[in-house]
Amino acid sequence: MMMLFDMIVYDLSAEYEAALIITLLCIIISFWAVMREREDLHRLILTELVEIMCLVIIALVATDLAEALILPGLVVGIAEFLALSELYIEKEGLRKAPENVLHIEVMDSAPGIIAVIFVIYGIILSGFTGGAVAGLGLLFYFMCRGSSEKREIIETVSGYAWACWVVAFIVFMAVPQYWFFGVIIAGAGIFAKVVAKMSLIGTMNGDGGEGDV
């Protein structure tokens, strides 16, 4: 069956040994940087360097499985970074919204149409990337038209998206003959989840809409 195609299966054993040593050297460098740095904000940024090295060491395995494992690794990094940066703002007591936020003509006229285009293209793409594209459109929309009252709705949507995912998982495990519904539910779930999370970031800028526009 596999021989029918003109398949190239890579033999990675020789490269892996060298690549792993180089990666471990890079990890040592990044940890060295974390060790030397004293400034709180810079340390937060340096942790992102460490996260990237974490993805590299997973990617070295170079199978389809490694490609699938990068996603959880990436998400854990993003989630912790988001939570920690909120914590940093809280800890330092930074209250004032930045004064010179970018404000140009296109931010008054374009948000609606740009958001619609992004959302439609995102729906066509679907899945994770589609969610990111559509979410980017909504992020831009909410950043231009600061609307904090939408936040509750978006949070609810992201909760339902998570539930979608759990339902899809149960379908796969309990009634695998309905795998098709599982795929579609999970695809819709990840789309809604990514859109909701990204537009949530859009509503979080500044002081929530009284000041801007």
Binding site: T47, V50, E51, M53, C54, G77, E80, A83
Partner: peptide, 10 residues
């Protein structure tokens, strides 16, 4: 602790 937990994921 957050910084520690974050670099601990590597």
């Amino acid at each position: 602790y957050g910084i520690l937990a974050m670099i601990g994921t590597l």
